[in-house]
């Protein structure tokens, strides 16, 4: 099959760029040499490339090294150590005027936690209702106490009194059957 101009023109760029395999390249070359239309196309393609390179090369030749390097060096020396940049990034958080809003927010937050602790639903053995407290020990060391650990800093000690009945609930405050801690 004879190579047609359309096909050749589609591959002309890749051929000029040396990106075609040997056989394809040879076929294109033979066609272009004998086809005025395709050789004209080839000349136009080359011209675009040559003029573009020329424009960019002329521009680049005007850029002197010293000022260019000065700009690069300035950027390098301006880059502070990583820690300094990190601090710079984090520092605004510590400005007094910036944290002013945080004070009432923190107070409200603490109050909310406090009231949750106060009014949260009761806590039963074996049923964790989202309360973060954990029983550390019951009747540990032979004393009649339950140790309820609510946080790292808050531990509640509850005195246990022996119940006369065989109660399912293993603990309870003396005055309440359903203890709410």
């Amino acid at each position: 099959m004879k190579t047609n101009c359309e096909t050749v023109k589609n591959s002309l760029g890749a051929w000029l760029d040396g990106e075609l395999g040997h056989a394809d390249a040879e076929e294109i070359r033979r066609h272009v040499e004998g086809c005025p239309s395709c050789s004209g196309e080839r000349r136009r393609l080359e011209r675009v490339q040559v003029v573009l390179s020329g424009v960019l090369e002329t521009e680049a030749s005007r850029v002197a090294f010293e000022p260019f390097w000065d700009g690069v060096r300035r950027r390098i020396s301006e880059e502070r150590p990583r820690q300094a940049r990190l601090w710079e990034w984090a520092r605004p958080a510590f400005y007094p005027q910036r944290i002013a809003w945080a004070v009432p927010v923190a107070i409200v937050f603490l109050l909310a936690i406090f009231s949750l602790v106060q009014y949260a639903p009761g806590w039963r053995w074996g049923v964790n209702r989202g309360n973060v407290a954990a029983v550390d020990s019951i009747d540990g060391h032979g004393f009649n106490v339950a140790v309820l650990r609510e946080s790292k800093t808050k531990t509640t000690v509850i005195w246990l009194f022996e119940s006369q009945e065989e109660d399912d609930e293993a603990s309870g405050e003396p005055t309440a059957k359903d203890p709410a801690f």
């Binding site: 573009l52 960019l56 090369e57 521009e59 680049a60 030749s61 850029v63 090294f65 260019f68 390097w69 700009g71 690069v72 950027r75």
Partner: peptide, 28 residues
């Protein structure tokens, strides 16, 4: 930098088409 700055500048200039921007970006 001395070896490649002109080539890099050409690449950047070709894409940006603006001398001052090309200078800034090439240094960057």
């Amino acid at each position: 930098v001395a070896k490649y700055y002109r080539k890099v500048y050409m690449v950047v200039l070709g894409i940006l088409n603006h001398r001052d921007d090309a200078m800034e970006v090439a240094q960057e």
